[in-house]
C-alpha cells in the first residue's frame, strides 16, 4: 500500500482544484479518509482542514470510516425503487443490524445505498464488493448474507 506522500506527489501543483482528486485517490487507496490524511492534505494544499472536512462531508462518495470486509452496495435508483427495493433494504438492515453508511461491529459488513447502477431490467440489484446480485427477493438476500456469514465461521 503506498503511503499518503506517494499520492500527494502525483499532484505537484498546489491548487485548490486538486482537492477532490487528491481525496478520491486517498479513498481509493485506503477505503476512507482518516483525520491524519485530512491534516496532511491540508498542509500539502495549504488549506484549512475545516474546508477539507466541509467539502468531503458534502459529497457522498467520501467516507470517514473504513469499509467492511464485505462492502454491500444496494441500488436505490428509481427503477429499483419501483421494483420494491425497500423490502430488500429493510431485509439487509435487519439482517446486518446496520443502516446506510454504517459498518457492523465485527467489521465484516458495511452498507451503502447508491443511485442507479444501470441494470434497471434486473432490479432490485446489489453488489457485494465486486460481485453483483440481480432480481433480488427477500429470501435471496437472506441467503446471500448467510452464505457470507458462514464463510467467516
Amino acid at each position: 500500500m503506498p503511503d499518503l506522500d506517494e499520492i500527494l506527489e502525483k499532484y505537484p501543483f498546489v491548487q485548490r482544484d486538486n482537492l477532490i482528486p487528491v481525496l478520491q485517490d486517498i479513498q481509493d487507496e485506503f477505503g476512507y479518509l482518516s483525520e491524519e490524511a485530512i491534516v496532511k492534505v491540508g498542509k500539502y494544499l495549504n488549506l484549512p482542514t475545516v474546508k477539507i472536512y466541509g467539502l468531503a462531508t458534502f459529497y457522498h462518495h467520501f467516507r470517514f470510516i473504513a469499509k467492511g470486509k464485505y462492502h454491500i452496495k444496494i441500488c436505490n435508483g428509481t427503477s429499483c425503487h419501483v421494483n420494491s427495493n425497500i423490502l430488500i433494504i429493510n431485509e439487509l438492515e435487519k439482517k446486518l443490524g446496520i443502516k446506510d453508511e454504517e459498518i457492523t461491529k465485527d467489521g465484516l459488513f458495511s452498507l451503502e445505498e447508491t443511485t442507479c447502477m444501470a441494470a434497471c431490467g434486473e432490479g432490485p440489484v446489489m453488489a457485494v464488493n465486486d460481485k453483483y446480485f440481480t432480481n433480488l427477493t427477500i429470501e435471496k438476500v437472506a441467503e446471500i448474507i448467510d452464505s457470507y456469514k458462514s464463510m467467516e465461521e
Binding site: I38, V50, K51, I52, Y53, G54, F58
Partner: peptide
C-alpha cells in the same frame, strides 16, 4: 474554525472533524 458540514437536511455548521 467553522464551515458548512454535510448537505441537504443534514447540513450544519461544524468545526474541523
Amino acid at each position: 474554525t467553522f464551515d458548512f458540514y454535510k448537505r441537504g437536511n443534514k447540513t450544519a455548521i461544524a468545526t474541523s472533524m
